[in-house]
């Protein structure tokens, strides 16, 4: 292994992670400095729910594709979302496995699993780029950051896919690109839309708290069979 690759796998990643942690902490302090609204009213609804239930339901919402009409009716989009985000987890995980537990990649099964997930995420990324450009609805709501973040992740997936075997016999270029991209990704994320997962627990917490108190969450489902 070259010095450069060693640096990319270790020092660079550690510095990038440190920067990300500092920026994220600052970001959370910034968010928490805004006051939280107070709700004085007694609960509404049938009485079988509460803020607490609403919060749990709201957090779990993402894993319940049947819960929202938008994910229920667009199951293809929802499936893409799941695979794409699993791809992110896998590709990030890879950046820890290679430097700290490379022996795990001796398992052909793990290599195959990671490659299938990351490869599928890469293809979905490509599809998402096309969708964002081709749909006038998506174009109308897209900023340069939206396009860049998507392209960044898709290209990163591409190099992660080829980095999974952790094989330098054919040269280090792919691994170098993957690790430099990972470091860039970690530093860029807090400043881009990709930081949405940082806010996710908060936005869903507050929506769940309100709608739980109001008896709206969990959403009461009606029987579709009743239609026929």
């Amino acid at each position: 292994m070259s010095h450069l690759l060693h640096f990319a796998e270790h020092t660079l990643q550690e510095v990038a992670l440190l920067i990300m942690a500092i920026v994220y902490t600052t970001r959370l302090i910034w968010l928490m400095r805004f006051k939280a609204g107070k709700e004085r009213q007694a609960n509404t609804g049938k009485g079988d729910t509460s803020s607490r239930k609403g919060i749990i339901y709201s957090w779990a919402n993402i894993a319940m594709p049947w819960a929202m009409e938008s994910s229920r009716k667009k199951f293809f989009l929802y499936s893409q979302f799941v695979i794409f985000h699993l791809g992110v987890v896998a590709a990030i995980g890879l950046s820890f496995i290679i430097p700290y537990a490379p022996q795990l990649l001796g398992s052909q099964v793990l290599v195959a699993v990671l490659q299938v997930i990351i490869g599928a995420a890469c293809l979905i990324g490509a599809y998402r780029i096309i969708r964002r450009i081709a749909s006038n609805y998506m174009r109308a709501i897209s900023s340069p950051d939206d396009y860049f973040s998507l392209v960044l992740l898709t290209v990163w997936f591409f190099f992660a896919f080829w980095s999974v075997p952790n094989n330098t016999s054919g040269g280090e270029t792919i691994l170098l690109i993957y690790f430099f991209m990972t470091a860039f990704f970690l530093i860029y994320v807090p400043f881009s839309k990709i930081s949405h997962y940082l806010y996710y627990p908060f936005t869903r917490y507050y929506l769940g708290k309100t709608l739980g108190k109001r008896g709206v969450y969990p959403v009461r489902r009606y029987s579709e069979e009743a239609r026929s």
Binding site: F34, G37, Y137, M138, D146, K193, H196, T203
Partner: peptide
């Protein structure tokens, strides 16, 4: 407030 700031910051333009 925190709820509104969260809602402003969290949109990913997923459509």
């Amino acid at each position: 407030n925190r709820q509104i700031v969260g809602s402003f910051a969290a949109c990913v333009h997923c459509g």
